[in-house]
Write a protein that binds this DNA or RNA. Structure first.
Lengths: 199, 199
DNA sequence: GTTTTTATGGAATGATCGTTAAAAAATGGT
DNA sequence: ACCATTTTTTAACGATCATTCCATAAAAAC
């Protein structure tokens, strides 16, 4: 019964996520969301209720992205290469890009200073997904002898997660002139795990 | 000649900086600034011109804070202790605090995705001040034998700077339950320089 | 084919946004 | 005492904010 929705919900939610990702919560207006989704104002609010609810949906949807990062670390490749590749991607993908969107989770962690507990929890969930992916990669590394089995890989997965946040902040203010610095930064980050340099 | 200003400029600029620090650029309204400074709207705009100019003044003023951090690393104490103390302060000073203001520079780096080049430069200047402080501390450590002279301390000062940014992101979403995790995170960050644990 | 139900798109809501205009007040110079 | 100059204060500006309302459209149920 009743009239069915005309829009593709996946496409709409992707547009929403993209818009918040590009501009953050405060700097994104309802008008921006209307234009990005190509829905009417009424349709958007009728379907999803409020800007805050839309933002939570965006953060929930971003879990797919977090999972994708986690999976990149667990391909059938040396753990060392997986980690370097991921950090290189994070550092280099935004060079010469403006505006730099960064990571929706990092951006949100900073924008909402723990002011909204539901959003805080969504941020933490996303970070947990990535941290678990890092942990599994490190465990794999210990099992195949790539990584010293004496290392506390639970602590180190948090260390890598935090280093990624730092790298993302540095990448946001970087220009192409900083490329070499970012690469040596990655070497130093991973020197906690691997003694020799970039493979 | 002419009427003198009634307000204390230092107090006003401190209020401005504090307000932006607490809430970020977008989330701070002109009304918030009027209330914080206790100036009239007209006085504020007459003296400083616009919200963006006020924000730039706040970032400029924050250099004092960056310099203070840099100086903390160069007291007459072991470099190791200086570094641990600073990182502990960063990680722990916001636990059980809400809202968490974090660091104005980190917040700004993330909020303005390199969209405003003047603001970007102010952010970079602040970070440069801190990085220089780190570098001098590391140099001091090499000179007094605390730090392996084979380490590339130019690279490592960038590494520490980036680690601080990451630590600040993690601290923003942390609760008191995460205290132990943050402390072990600091140990892991500094393990690149010091082989043994927290002094 | 009529009824019921929901989606749609656009106009309209009051509130707040950053900023400016204008009158009043206060000081220094003469 | 009076003028020149600048600050202060208050009101007001148009724009935009998030959200809601409503008339219309469309499909399913009967």
């Amino acid at each position: 019964m009743s009239r069915p929705r005309e829009f593709n919900e996946d496409r709409v939610l992707d547009s929403i996520m993209d818009t918040f990702w590009k501009s953050g919560y405060e700097q994104t207006s309802a008008q921006d969301l209307v234009e990005a989704t190509k829905l009417g104002r009424g349709s958007l609010y009728g379907a999803y209720g409020s800007k805050e609810k839309l933002f939570k949906l965006a953060l929930t949807r971003y879990k797919n992205h977090s999972r994708a990062c986690a999976e990149k670390l667990n391909q059938k490749l040396p753990v060392k290469k997986c980690l370097y590749d991921l950090l290189h991607e994070i550092a280099l993908s935004e060079i010469e890009v403006s505006p730099k969107r960064g990571c929706l989770v990092t951006n949100t962690a900073v924008e909402f200073s723990g002011q909204n507990s539901e959003i805080n929890e969504l941020v933490r969930t996303n970070l947990r997904i990535l941290k678990q992916g890092i942990y599994h990669a490190l465990l794999r590394g210990q099992e195949n002898g790539e990584i010293d089995s004496k290392l506390n890989i639970i602590q180190i997965s948090l260390y890598i997660l935090s280093s990624i946040q730092g790298l993302r902040v540095m990448a946001k203010i970087s220009t192409s002139e900083d490329t070499a610095d970012l690469l040596s930064l990655i070497d130093n980050i991973l020197s906690v795990i691997f003694k020799d340099k970039n493979p």
